[in-house]
Nucleic acid binder design. Sequence first.
DNA 1: ATTATCTACTAAACCTGTTTAGCATTACCA
DNA 2: TGGTAATGCTAAACAGGTTTAGTAGATAAT
Lengths: 337, 337
Amino acid sequence: MKKKLSIVDIANSLNISKTTVSFILNGRAQEKRISDELVKRVLQYVKEVGYKPNSLAKSLRTGKSNIIGLLVQDISNHFFATIARRIEDLAYQNGYKIIYSSTDNDTQKTRELIAMFRDRHVDGYIITPPDNIEEDISDLIKDGFPVVLFDRYLPKVATDYVVVDNLFSTFNATQYLIDKGHKNIAFITYSSIQTQMIERLEGYEKAMHQSKLKPNITEVDFHTTVQEMLKLMTNFLEKNKDVDAILFANNHLGKCGLKAIRKAGKNIPGDIALIAFDDYELFELYTPAVTAIAQPIDEIADNVIKLLMERLNATVPEEKNQHITLATELIIRDSSN
Amino acid sequence: MKKKLSIVDIANSLNISKTTVSFILNGRAQEKRISDELVKRVLQYVKEVGYKPNSLAKSLRTGKSNIIGLLVQDISNHFFATIARRIEDLAYQNGYKIIYSSTDNDTQKTRELIAMFRDRHVDGYIITPPDNIEEDISDLIKDGFPVVLFDRYLPKVATDYVVVDNLFSTFNATQYLIDKGHKNIAFITYSSIQTQMIERLEGYEKAMHQSKLKPNITEVDFHTTVQEMLKLMTNFLEKNKDVDAILFANNHLGKCGLKAIRKAGKNIPGDIALIAFDDYELFELYTPAVTAIAQPIDEIADNVIKLLMERLNATVPEEKNQHITLATELIIRDSSN
DNA sequence: ATTATCTACTAAACCTGTTTAGCATTACCA
DNA sequence: TGGTAATGCTAAACAGGTTTAGTAGATAAT
């Protein structure tokens, strides 16, 4: 194991001061009036021996790490995995690396993760916030860290965020079902105080009200296992034989719903019509294909990074916050009926 | 932004040396003969003011970071996302954090990522290696870093790895198709020199040979887009009307194959029987459900972490390497035919 | 001729911990 | 009573960079 070169080794080899080497490597040669000739000599030598500054030492002194902390709800969920992947690529293009973790929507875990990120001196945060995390996020912002939220936001916290138009999305989807003649449209969602879930619920309720239809809302606890969820859904189907359409508030619920409906031997969309929030290969390829509300995954990632980069590159902290709301697309796959 | 406390602040507040504080916080009080009374006083005070040592400074001095670098092929792929998620949880339980990135099977990108991980002083590496990365991984091992590979291994590199019994899996799956009376069984795979792909091919070939059937192998370039893949598959179906069964070498190929078959209006398994490597919700819920080779995802993650922890906790570097091969399960979903 | 300014660098402090080497005391033993 | 050992703690070096403050010598201005 050949010993790693340090800046002192470089300086000694060239008989100059490590200060000079540091200035040159950080592009401050001109400003510090280092002669072009020496700059060339140093860069040449550094390249020749393959010297790389120790970034820990660098971070320790500068307080910067070129690392972004990404906290998603669950990296094994397709929606988050795809966004995480694109964020990773975009960050990389901007010279940043990503450290990520799954919050599991667990407040305590998220707290610890934020503490760990701070500890590792990450430069900025991208977070899908769980409940009751307002204070921790406010602290981050107060301490000057750029924070961008996505998928949902925290009404009490002034920060940048990127979300989709949840209310209109479910309103529109519900309206679509109503227009197709459905009367008993159920909405299955998580019992959540998170903005995205509340808005999705409101969109559904608004459409039902407008058409003077009776809402039928089922709220499932977030930590319900897949097994329990299946039981719940099966139960629901048995007790709600008159329901002729279901709107699911996210892809996981939609998936479990599909399984239950399949087990119950019902036909889609003959016996029961379905729409799921979040599109998914499963919904596309399922037979018959399932209509879904597709979120603009790439756009979400693009905007998240854009907002974060703006803050990271700002010389003076920007007071005003940017809120970006993107449109979804209702992908109709049961038009034949 | 209240200034963060440093160990010097603690020492000054208590009128003792920072050395003493450091010893106490690192559990070396006894060894260093610090009085129980002082230990108590320091711990009490540290807790009271909420002091946390700066881990960058710590890492800089000790060379340890308690961070594991995880390089998967593509985090947006369900198989890798699920394993990554579990590895993350298990590492967390063992006091380690994960930094991960997707390699995209791109050698150059992987090289840069390994360099970045080294740079951040990660303590150990978990990698799904792309082609031609042997030298970089050997360097890591030579320099004393624990490395565990999974999903595939590098025959020329002596290291720990966790894989599944690919050859038997495809052999068994092919045999299942043969037993069901299929004669023209095609195998669609990536043109890859990676061990897992080679073994899957060999398993298929072995079964076909044993039954004196003619192999029909299509190799697709790894970087083919979904669009191109669909065209390829559609083309394949048109030119191979006699094919009555297809074995796909991984979930992505299986997914694209399903789409193409659906577009071609063929019935599964009536017109054509399918088996995909990697199980998937899609395959389970597709109508009719698709038979698949399920990898033991949790077991893979468990063993990867187990091997890595053994190396990380070893006081003397272990010479012998451990190779773990796990069984897959053929999940039969078209038994009615 | 003297002072100011510029050029081209550098010594030393700093970031925040860990680790090595060592220094007063007090206790113990012959 | 003098020498050794144990106790309890600390100063300083170190990890590897960045940044501040400054210096020696050349040139320009007064």
